[in-house]
Amino acid sequence: MDKGFTPRITALLCQWCSYTGADLAGTSRLQYPTSIIAMKVMCSSRVDPVLLLKAYLSGSGGVLLAGCHPGDCHYEVGNYHTRRRFAILKAIFDTLGLESARLKLSWISASEGPKFAQVANEYTDEIKKMGENPSKKKMFL
């Protein structure tokens, strides 16, 4: 039987919007793959890009960082900083030819349960197509 390949997607969700949106997806019984596993942070701006980098190098199929929509930040402007930091990390990946698609930034509000489920589903599909994170196979990494 083809067991299929299930990539791990590690997610960091801000507690005011995206984590709440993820809860709402569950409350609404919207279904998405178990591959995604989330950790709550106060604000997306708490997440040092280095943490995302580390998750990538540890072989996470995808790394999702989600926060309130720009302008909606519970901490006024945190997500604007998140966005710049993420842009820098992505540019580094792109320049080095690393798969920046394994890093994803998403804005998910507290009422966007469906969006969370959609992001979880689509991102899992995308990562499935990409296959396993090469970091996980490199013996000299």
Partner: peptide, 10 residues
């Protein structure tokens, strides 16, 4: 930061 930038992210 700028409020309007990197609209392709997120």
């Amino acid at each position: 930061y700028k409020e309007e930038e990197f609209s392709e992210l997120g």
